[in-house]
């Protein structure tokens, strides 16, 4: 799905989004009630470079500085972070963190943030973009991942076939929308048949001030213990003070 097709289905009442440098886009869209939504995005599966991260973060900072608390929808089709010596030398970790921080700050500042993943996102780029928003929606065909299975096979020194077999029994490590949704990363996956416009408007109204992805993972059975462990730590924290 192209960004324009996606925008048209999400915001049939209108959108004015322009391509920025380095495979980014930015602009505005109108909801059916006439309310405005800010759009920021990355396209064409571009590996996330310092340039892209700083461009996206800059757009979001300007939105927050605007002070209108407009909802922000992030349209994501990236890859992993760009893997070059130069980017690491320049502190790619800071650029990715800066982007994640700015998206999070927008949420804390009263902007509803929703990421719509319509392509790929992997590893650190996934964390800095799609996973940084309060809510993550995937579109059928989206491909989120931490690392592809052949690479996991190499690092864990397990044969690929064995890994593929294990992936059938648990969503804990395999790439893709289904396992990631089971662990709570993805709120909803929309298919071709869905009315994206209705859906996004519903999602934008959801309360999202706290991070409930571990609860979701527990409910869906993909992350059975994370939420309860976090709760136990929190419960003990006060006791440990005394």
């Amino acid at each position: 799905m192209t960004p324009v097709e996606l925008l048209t289905r999400l915001f049939p009442s209108g959108h004015e989004v322009v391509a920025g440098p380095f495979n980014t886009l930015a602009g505005r869209a109108i909801l059916t009630d006439g309310a405005a939504v800010e759009i920021v995005g990355v396209t064409d599966g571009a590996p996330l470079s310092p340039e892209i991260a700083i461009e996206l973060a800059g757009s979001i900072i300007r939105i927050v500085q605007d002070g209108k608390k407009t909802p922000i929808v992030l349209l994501i089709d990236t890859a992993s972070q760009r893997m070059t010596r130069r980017d690491e030398m320049l502190g790619l970790n800071e650029y990715l963190a800066h982007l994640a921080k700015v998206v999070t700050l927008a949420g804390l500042s009263g902007h509803r943030t929703v990421a719509v993943l319509y392509g790929a996102a992997a590893a650190g780029a996934f964390i800095a973009t799609a996973l940084a928003a309060q809510t993550l929606i995937t579109i059928d065909g989206a491909h989120p991942s931490v690392m592809d299975l052949p690479s996991i096979a190499r690092v864990t020194k397990l044969p690929l076939e064995i890994l593929e077999k294990k992936a059938e029994t648990t969503p804990i490590f395999a790439p893709g929308v289904t396992p990631l949704a089971a662990t709570g990363a993805v709120l909803e996956n929309w298919t071709e048949a869905d009315n994206f416009s209705d859906r996004i408007e519903t999602v934008l109204t959801l309360e999202a001030s706290s991070d409930t992805r571990d609860t979701l993972g527990e409910e869906r059975g993909g992350r059975k213990v994370a939420h309860s462990v976090a709760l136990r730590v929190a419960a003990e924290f006060g006791k440990a003070a005394r």
């Binding site: 590893a123 996934f126 964390i127 996973l131 931490v146 690392m147 996991i152 690092v155 864990t156 969503p171 804990i172 490590f173 395999a174 790439p175 396992p179 990631l180 662990t183 709570g184 990363a185 992805r213 571990d214 993972g217 993909g222 992350r223 994370a226």
Partner: peptide, 10 residues
């Protein structure tokens, strides 16, 4: 990587 999805979310 053995818990890649849980780790990424963490």
């Amino acid at each position: 990587l053995q818990e890649a999805n849980a780790g990424e979310l963490a």
